[in-house]
Each structure stands twice: as C-alpha cells, then as structure tokens.
Design a protein around this nucleic acid. Sequence first.
DNA 1: GTTTCGGTTCTTTTT
DNA 2: GAACCGAAAC
Length: 647
Amino acid sequence: MAKIDFEKALNPEQLAAVTSPDGPSLVLAAAGTGKTRTLVYRVARLVERGVDPGRILLLTFTNRASKEMLERARDVVGDGVGGVWGGTFHHMANRILRHHARAIGYEPGFVILDRDDSLSLISNCVKECKLQDKDFPKRDVLMSLFSSAANTEVALPILIEKRFGQFATEMDKIVRIHKMYMERKFKLGSMDFDDLLVNCLKLFRDKEETLGRYQEQFQHVLVDEYQDTNTIQAEMVDRLAAKNRNILVVGDDFQSIYSWRGANYMNIMSFPERYPGANVYKLETNYRSVPEILNVANACIAGNPEQFQKTLRATREAYKKPAVAKLRDGDEQARYVVEHIRTLCRSGYKLSDIAVLYRAHFHAMELQIELTHQRMAHVITSGVRFFEQAHIKDVCCVLRLLEKPTDEMAFVRLMGLFPGVGEKTAEKLWHGMGDHFDGNDEVQRKKLLETVKPAARPGIAKIMPIFAAYREEELQDDAGEVIHRFTKEFYEHYASETFDDDERRLDDIMELVLYTTKFESTERFLTDVALLTNLDAEIAAVDGTDKPAIRLSTVHQAKGLEYPAVIVLWATDGMFPSSRSMNESPQGEAEERRLFYVAVTRAKDELCICVPEVRRNRDGSVIYCTPSRFVEEIPKGFVREVRPGFI
DNA sequence: GTTTCGGTTCTTTTT
DNA sequence: GAACCGAAAC
C-alpha cells in the first residue's frame, strides 16, 4: 500500500487535527470545513501508524454518516478499516448489551421497541389505570416526558416541576403511568430506544470489569457531531476513554439542533475543562459554499451571541447573492419552486443537485402535490420511517414470534390482522395460549386454530404451515423466505382489502425481502432493523437503482449533507422559527436560529429562501405571516429580493 | 362486549 | 394521513 500523503490531502488546519498526538482532542469544525474528511483521515492515520482497526471506535449520529466515513476511509487505507467499530450510540449500546444483558437483569434476546410499540404500551397503561380523560396528557406527550427524563437523567417529578409546569396537577398520575410503563417493558423483555443508552451506561457504571474490557478494547475513541450528544452519551464516552484518554471529538456548537432530545452542547463547551490539556483545533476554512452564501450564514448566526464565535472563511470565488422570494401563499410557493427548479435545470443542474428543505414535513404539502402534478421526480425523506410503516411491521410479526415465542406485542398485532379479531380478542387468545405462542409446536398451532373465532380461522389456517416450515424446512436463517410466504399466503389479499395503495406497499415488502439477504440470521435482522431509519435503509437497500430526483427533506434530516442548490420553504415567523419551539423553552429561538444556519450552510452555489405572505387554513380562512426574523436579520445588501408575480 | 366504520381534527424536529 | 371519537353492526 502506498504511503498516504497527508500534507497533500489536507489543509494545515485539518492536518493539525488529523496528526494530533495521543490524548484528548477537541476539533471545532464549522459547516463545510471538511469535518468528515478530517475524521476519515484520522482513522486512516491511526491505522497507518499500526493501530489495530478493531481497537478503534467511531461513533456517529446516523448510520448513514458511519457508512460514508468507513467507505471513504477504505478508499484511503484499504480493506484494513473493516474491523473498525462504527455506528450510532444506539448501535454500539445494542451490540454491547447483547453480550452482557444478563449482568443487568435482561435476557440477551431482548426486543427493541420502536416508537409505535412504546406508544401503544403507554396507551395500554393509561387505559388500565382508567386515566384517559380529556385533560390527561396524550400518549405522545407522556412519551416525550419519559424520554426527556431518561435522556437528561432528571427524575420525572423534578423534570415536570422545572420544565413542564403545566402538568404539575397530574404529577402523581403521570409518575404512576411511568412506573407501570417501565415495569411492563421489563416484563416483556424489551427495551425502548432510551433504555439502550440508559442500560449501557448502567452497565459501564456498575460492572467495572465489563467496562474495563471495553476500555482495553477501544484504544481510540472518535466521536462525530459531539455537540448533539446528551448527558448519557457524553458519560458513556468519558467512561470508555477514561483509561487510555485517546479521545477525539468533532463538533460545531452552531449546529446543535437536538436539544429537544436531551442534547446538551455544554458537553462540547466544557470539553477543555473536563479534559485539561486537551488539544483544541479549529476548522474555519469553508470549501463548500460561495462567499455570498457564507455572508448570509455568518450574519444569521451572529444573532446568537452566546456561542463560541467562529467565522467561516470562504475559499470559493464570488458567484451571486442568495435570493429571497416573496410569494403570496403556499400554492404560489409551490409553483414558484417548480419554476425555479426548471430554471436551475436549464442552467445545467441535475435534479439530484437540488434539495428543498423545510422545518416540518407538512410545510411541503402543496409542493408535493405540485411536483406530482408536474411529473417531476422527487424523493421525500419522509416522516414515517420505512421500518415503522404498518405493512412492514405487520409482516415482521411472524418472524418476531418465531424468534421469541413470548413476544406478546407481535402476537397481538398479528392476530389483529384477521377478521373479527381486535385488541381485546387477541389478548384473550394470548392468555389462553399460556402467555406464549410457539409456532414450532404443533400442539400450540392446533390449539390456536381451535380457540379462534370462526371468521378468523381460514386466514390463520393459511399461515400455520409457515410456522411449521420454520423448523422443518430450516427457514431460521431465511427471513426473506418467511416474509415471502406470509405475503403470498395471506398478506397480499389482506393488503388489497385494507389499503388503497396496496401495490406500493407490496413493492415495499418485496424490497424488504431483498434487504433481508444482507443479514446472516433472522435474529440479527430483527434487532438491526429496529435501529434503522428510513434514510439508512434507502441507501443500503437500493444502492445504484436511484433515478435522478429532487430531494425533499426536513432541515434535521439534511444535517451533514450538501447540495449545489438549496431551496428553503416557509421562512415566516411561526413556521420557521416554529411557534411551538419558541413557546416551549426560552432557548427555543437560539436553537431555531442554529437550525436556519444549518439549512443555509447546506448550499454550495444557489440558495433561495421562500417567504409566503399568507397561510390558508382548511376552512379557507387566511393568516397573515410576518417574514421570518432570521430573514429580516440578514443585511439588505446580502440578498436579492424576487417577486415572481404569478397570477 | 367488541369490532368496524365514518366523520372530525390537527399536523415539529428523531435514534 | 393518521389519530381520535362516537355510533352502528356483529
């Protein structure tokens, strides 16, 4: 392997960070300054210096980021990087907990509850306590309270008192539900997303010898997007690195946009104090955007004076000022965006060079309709994740049950698919079967068929052979075949009667079948799938088959990405910044401003910010919108105003 | 007692 | 579009 020429590949700022000596290092990397490149070359550097790749831990915020970094590192140093532990915090926690579940009282086969599972479990608790009055907090609210408590390590009553005073009167009941939810989860042998982190940290705190083993294993710990770590994640990393102290974290406090999930950018601000003598590097040379875009970015972040001040230094040549388009309403905005995209394409941009970003999914509603109408190819990184869609979860139930006969949630969901069976009937069936259903057991299969209502019997009879075949035909490690049979025998018909878009859903299922081939076992498939998001699946599943299309995405999901042309929708007060987050916490505005900064800094050449004047309600009434304060803050000379004047 | 269906309401951000 | 509610249907 040729020696890597670090001096040639990196600028002096990046080179300093990449060649940082052992010990703690903090890299403050502003947007577009080659943060990923720096991490990639840091990994390459370590491997080149003879560090065993299996002893490097690279923690990232998304699976996508992890995949990208490891691929790029492979291009630089070769296949040696294969052994690097890379992934999200949740992934690492999952992987570790599968080995040590017993040490903290769980079975290694624990199930991961996704958002829907957690919500329905909470609903059950609320119903059982007969607390579903109108003024009792809804399950979504309860879940975010519980999640907040878990991720910030604040006891629920204190959290309610301090940050959710509006629920103070219901405090005791909320605490009761919470306790019940925790017990239920545990009894089901399951963990929600937060439990993965909480329990992994618990393991590190309580089991010294286990922690010691991982401290020994991970000679070097690298963390990406460090500004978005929460208290638990920061402590996990601190503990892992406590022995070798070879920790390098990369982040940008300007891009901290996850505080609502417990992220605390004090983690990055206080890093130098927690690690005295840490080397601190700043990356401020921006390679991504034209100077006009950087002017706008610098101007808008200046509204947050309390942050670490950094200035983006441009390297690209002057091009043209970003546009602010004043539109009448959402419909005109949609037509204008389509028109603008056509113009961009005429001047040489491809559809895949263009991204439309917005604060919340529903902001893109009119545009979605218009794009479909105009037959313009577009991809939405949608709000519903691939693996959380009803049809995907439905077909996975069979596998869940086969792998874990005590998975009550899977059983109830599966039975609910058959006519005449709802939640109550399914639960009764479950208890009747002795709180477990082993599809490999012929006696159990017969019993189920006999107890079930006549209406459901033919359907269930059709799928029983699949359960039987699991062991008999050795389908244990062929998740795809099980799903395929289930679909052919039953789900195809069910879908055609239940959904009006059944064809699309069946296509999804076929894609899922293909996707299962990536996993060596059904167990691995099921546990990994729970931690995959849409984006990750999309990229992993259909590599290469993507047609050129415009990308529609929330700003959150566009984090870490860049596009030659970016269009921002609904830059009006109340929409972006979102009135909700402005009301929710005093720091709301600062975080919204950082979010706006993230949106602006995704653009390389072309940036267009849309500002509609009115919002229409369903009933036809209109709300007048003030342009976003973030747009008003930009000095007038930095942008050019456009008024398309459609009819 | 349950399920199903039709009407109504409101949409933040995600591992 | 999906979650919730109430009323009809089984």
